[in-house]
């Protein structure tokens, strides 16, 4: 129930957008969260954008062109006397010098768009994504493969602004029938160096301060207590010794007096 409602609103939105501004749109973020990445940009395929130019009984194809934004000053023309431009990624130095052809695919079916509710279905997911989205920069190998003859769609440059354009081609006659505007500027992600990550913890936690300070105080008190008890014992010992000595000397005196024939001096008083 809910999913069909979502699909319905999405289709309405799609129609609305197509009517107002015909520009390639970046894929919705709820569908493709990881977009754009460093080297790829995922676009929505041009649903219902070329409806007015389509005639039955003719075959059509859509070309996707990409260029760096800086290149628009040099050349942003993709039609050469009603023929589509044929420059490749290498020829334009990755879009720096002008638009290059990034992809060729069938015109998306406006009448029966893929059901976005099927995204949750593992078996249908890749089909829905394929029909609905196109990922610029998806092919990491074609540049280095000498046997690759198709349209090469190699990774884009990071931290660079790109623009995209769809073109409708009549494949029977080889003539461009329609085109969208250049898309809004889309910037690939910037990368940061992990070296610059600061791992310093900053302020100390209260735990650490409490534990350290209290323990230091306790240790100090313990040592002080130990010293106090040792000194008190030592004092007691010396006091004991002195009293013993005194006793001894007293005894000696008494003994002396006795030996001299005097028993207790007090007796004489």
């Amino acid at each position: 129930m809910c999913s069909s409602w979502v699909v319905f609103t999405f289709c309405c939105l799609g129609q609305l957008c197509a009517g107002k501004s015909l520009k390639p749109q970046i894929a919705a973020s709820w569908l493709a969260a990881n977009n754009p990445t460093h080297t790829t940009v995922t676009l929505q395929k041009p649903f219902c954008m070329f409806d007015s130019s389509l005639h039955p009984n003719k075959s059509y194809a859509v070309y996707l062109y990409a260029m760096e934004e800086s290149a628009s000053a040099i050349s942003s023309l993709v039609i050469n006397s009603s023929k589509p431009l044929d420059s490749t990624f290498q020829q334009t130095r990755g879009g720096q010098l002008g638009p290059y052809k990034a992809a060729l695919f069938n015109v998306p079916n406006c009448a029966s768009p893929p059901r976005l509710a099927d995204v949750g279905d593992i078996n249908k997911l890749s089909d829905v994504l394929k029909q609905y989205l196109f990922r610029v920069g998806d092919d990491g190998n074609c540049l280095y493969d000498p046997n690759f003859l198709g349209i090469c769609n190699p990774p884009l440059a990071p931290d660079t602004t790109y623009r995209f354009k769809y073109l409708l081609l009549d494949t029977t006659e080889g003539i461009v029938k329609d085109q969208t505007l250049w898309s809004d500027a889309i910037k690939t992600r910037r990368v940061k160096l992990p070296l610059k990550i600061d791992t310093w913890p900053g302020r100390r936690s209260g735990d650490m301060i409490v534990i350290t300070s209290i323990l230091s105080v306790l240790m100090f008190l313990l040592l002080a207590g130990f010293l106090a008890s040792v000194s008190s014992v030592w004092k007691a010992k010396t006091a004991l010794k002195i009293t013993k000595k005194k006793k001894k000397s007293k005894k000696k005196k008494i003994y002396k007096n006795k030996s001299m024939g005097l028993s207790d001096p007090k007796l004489f008083q």
Partner: peptide, 8 residues
């Protein structure tokens, strides 16, 4: 594909 694109 879903993982690469970040499909929820």
């Amino acid at each position: 594909d879903g993982c690469k694109l970040g499909v929820p």
